[in-house]
Computed example of a mutant assay.
Amino acid sequence: MTTTSPTSPDDLTATTFELAGHAGALHGKAWEGIDPTYVVLLVHGYGEHVGRYQWVAEKLVADGAAVYGLDHLGHGRSDGERVLVADFEPVVDDVHLLFERARAEHPQLPVVLLGHSMGGMIGARYAQRYGAELAAVVLSGPVIGRWDAVEALLGADEIPDVPIDPDTLSRDAAVGQAYVDDELVWHGPFKRPTLEALHREIGLITDAGRVDAVPVLWLHGEDDQLVPIEPSRGGWQHLAGDRAEQRSYPGARHEILNETNKEEVLGDALGFVHRHLPAAG
């Protein structure tokens, strides 16, 4: 099923579609201008959905990208119990389904992956498994190395019903308010099977080690209180290959693509991508 609908009268039109994921139907979006020159796969974070990346998609399309994203199992408009993910390896497989959809529609274009937070974790594992199929990977505030919040919650007898603090997302208060008001965002507690799966996947990425098949860029806010930079840096040291690059942003919080310096962040990401896209023939 494919439908086309604008998210608002002034916004770039998004095409919606469904993919048959590993445990149910996955809701997808695609944004595209005229004659794109490359493809970007957007991989969203925990509890959110790909519709929150409208601004990013618009900027990418203006740069020449065809942009594809999907709501993970249990997220947004996709099937599944809310935020319940028992194993992230099949979620990586779901992202590969998205790659195959994009490749079928644009068989000659290079493909880039951009993953944020938990989506950065998924993107890191995707790079380990499928990196040779990609031109570049950008990880924004990725959950790699260690996430102390997961360790603490797993050690609790009962998971507290405490939602993510919107103030940790951005210095722009409007970002946090939009997050709170978004009915497709999960505002409840973590679920123990998801925490266990996160813990396993982080360890699996560390054990699998460096990525040399594709250039990878790590971006992180230095005042990220949700996914602190130092544990992520530890994971990056295991992951970074010969063509890896990194950049951090003083004062920036977790959602650097929604931060007050978001133009700078996306500019850095696009500069990296263009350095690694194949030359047009």
Rank of each mutant, 00 (worst) to 15 (best):
M1K: 06
T15E: 15
E18H: 11
E18P: 01
L19W: 03
L19K: 04
D35T: 04
Y38N: 10
W55S: 15
V56W: 05
E58P: 01
K59R: 15
A65H: 03
A65R: 03
G69K: 01
H75G: 08
S78I: 00
D79F: 01
E81Q: 10
A86D: 15
A86H: 06
D87G: 07
E89I: 05
D94S: 04
D94R: 00
V95A: 11
L98R: 03
L98H: 08
E100R: 02
R101N: 06
A104I: 00
L109N: 12
P110K: 00
P110Q: 05
V111F: 00
V111Y: 00
L113D: 11
L114S: 14
G115K: 00
H116K: 02
M118W: 04
G119A: 04
G120V: 00
M121W: 05
I122V: 14
I122D: 14
G123V: 01
A124Q: 11
E133R: 06
G141A: 09
G145T: 01
R146L: 14
G155R: 06
A156P: 07
A156E: 12
D157I: 02
I159W: 01
P160G: 11
P160D: 14
V162C: 12
I164R: 09
P166G: 11
L169F: 02
D172M: 04
A173Q: 10
A174I: 06
A178G: 13
Y179C: 04
D181N: 08
D181I: 04
E183K: 04
V185H: 07
G188C: 09
H199A: 15
R200M: 06
L204Y: 07
T206S: 14
T206R: 08
V211W: 01
V216L: 10
W218Y: 10
G221P: 02
D224T: 03
Q225I: 06
L226N: 14
P228S: 12
P228G: 14
P231W: 00
G234R: 03
W236P: 07
W236Y: 13
H238W: 07
A244P: 07
P250A: 15
R253V: 05
H254A: 10
I256D: 10
L257T: 09
T260L: 11
E263T: 12
G267V: 02
R275P: 06
R275K: 12
P278M: 07
